[in-house]
Design a protein around this nucleic acid. Sequence first.
DNA 1: ATGGCAATGTTTCATTGA
Length: 258
Amino acid sequence: MILAAWNVNSLTVRLPRLLDWLAQHRPDVLCLQETKVPDPKFPNAELEAAGYTPHFSGQKTYNGVAILVRHGLAASNVACGIPGFEDEQKRVIAATVQDVRIIDVYVPNGQAVDSDKYQYKLAWCTAAAGYFRDELARNGNLAVLGDFNVAPDDRDVHDPALWAGQLLCTDAERAAFRAFLDAGLKDSFRQFEQPPATFSWWDYRQLAFPKNHGLRIDHVLLSAPLVARCAASRIDRSARKGDKPSDHAPVLVELRDA
DNA sequence: ATGGCAATGTTTCATTGA
């Protein structure tokens, strides 16, 4: 089973590239973030024609998440948001596919370390950690995929000195990420030997991608039973190349059958 | 010392992202 996550930075703009990518990789499940499309305008027909059933929770301009499930598989118990955490922003959708509970997250960016949005980010992460813990108690096969907007440690930063204490790299954000792991999850990417300087996001400016000035902020977290089944975890940096790319590259994991 | 790009709607600039 192939699971993937991709912040597409506008599903409307990225749809042609997304369809190409789906045809090339044929993941069983793809979790999207930053779709930026209200539900009535979601491109259902195009994705169905591509062989995927979408489940989505979107809004105008900002945020928006979707889980695409390959035809032949069924999704059950689709749920949006974090139970008990009131939030206008569409950042979470969950579904069960085969024996795996999947949660697609778009963690708040935080904007600036001294901002209200940063405080919202930390509060959101606290609520999310509780949600992951609760879901794990219900189904031991839990995968949390998405844009976490945190570079977990200095290996995940092209220039750690430059980024020290900056948004996405602060102690509090990294502690929030560790709290996700403490809920019973592992960073699938770090279960394998990886090339140094592997990132999932590169700024559109300053030739950041050709210079590989990136951060690894998109992740797939797996519970212990799924770590045991995980055969690979990687980032498809080729998706960042060419015309009109998203600023994020997809993350993929391969799970062996139970 | 600063901004540099891209997407969106509030559209010919402001806001946000990361």
